[in-house]
Write a protein that binds this DNA or RNA. Structure first.
Lengths: 155, 155
DNA sequence: GAAATTTAGTTGACACGTCAATCTTCTCTC
DNA sequence: GAGAGAAGATTGACGTGTCAACTAAATTTC
């Protein structure tokens, strides 16, 4: 392999900021959720998704697709959450392989009490820092980077 | 608590893209490193940091600071990497509590052979998608968001 | 200079994500 | 309608990150 083009000074600045941001943000969010609601961001995602879906209409595979998660990741997390009493799984009526996921009362209470704090976190970190124009430019850049990566099969 | 301001349509778009990006990018990078170099991004960070430091001048605490990692995370990873023969730890000469971290020959070979592919990945995903102007604006936005979060002690 | 505090680092328990292997059920094809 | 293959989901092993508790050495304080 020929010598690669290493990063120049300006590029290193971006890479450094990028890395701190990308690894730091999820950690901060996890911490906020753990502290204020005793849950992980994964659990929040699941509770939010199930609470918004039509009753008896959400299956593990749908979760895996919409969250872009591995099936087994979903399965492991659902098992833990079922153990905590946040959700229930029951055999799907239409597909013998499938399952329906439902929130228990405890699950509803948990997501309801966690949501306001979580939304505030997202607002205060992400939205309040940028103007409307900036937000749209920011979103476009993220999408651009991601679609280029997808095109090269690096995502 | 009063009813929070939920996200409007435009905000949800950004949040969705943001989430896919922030959780997806590290995963893609981990996959590239695992596939092409048999290592995790954490191991890469450590090898890169140690290889760039002055000999016998890098200690676990320095790593924790510069990578913004928990001390125990550093300790766990160093133990595993020592087990794989990538690094060595020896008692520091000046501070009885401290240690010096050194790369073994295997460690040097590993980082040297992994670096080109990793840099290509970063270039192709992050830099090639944005113009010089866009890169600078992007970096500034990340920094803005992060510093606002730091200010509110949410980071 | 001895006691209290701070600092460097480790450890153990546990939650989490990934991968490969597996099981079951459904669907397609002949 | 039987057999091959695809799809939904689980399992187990393993590497990883976090938190709290801990040890030992250094520094501060009186």
């Amino acid at each position: 392999m020929s010598e690669p083009r290493w990063l120049n000074e300006e590029e290193q600045q971006l890479w450094l900021e990028f890395r701190e941001f990308l690894w730091g943000f999820p950690r901060s969010m996890d911490r906020q959720l753990a502290r204020d609601a005793g849950m992980s961001s994964g659990e929040y995602s699941v509770l939010a998704a199930v609470s918004q879906a039509a009753p008896d209409a959400l299956r593990p595979g749908d979760l895996a697709t919409s969250l872009e998660w591995d099936r087994s990741r979903v399965s492991h997390l659902l098992r833990r959450m079922e153990g905590k009493g946040l959700i229930e799984r029951c055999a799907s009526s239409c597909d013998g392989r499938g399952q329906d996921i439902k929130l228990t009362d405890a699950g509803w209470n948990t997501i309801r009490s966690a949501a306001p704090g979580h939304v505030s976190f997202v607002r205060e970190t992400l939205f309040d820092s940028l103007s409307g124009d900036e937000r749209e430019r920011f979103r476009a850049m993220l999408a651009k980077i991601r679609s280029a990566a997808v095109e090269r099969e690096l995502w």
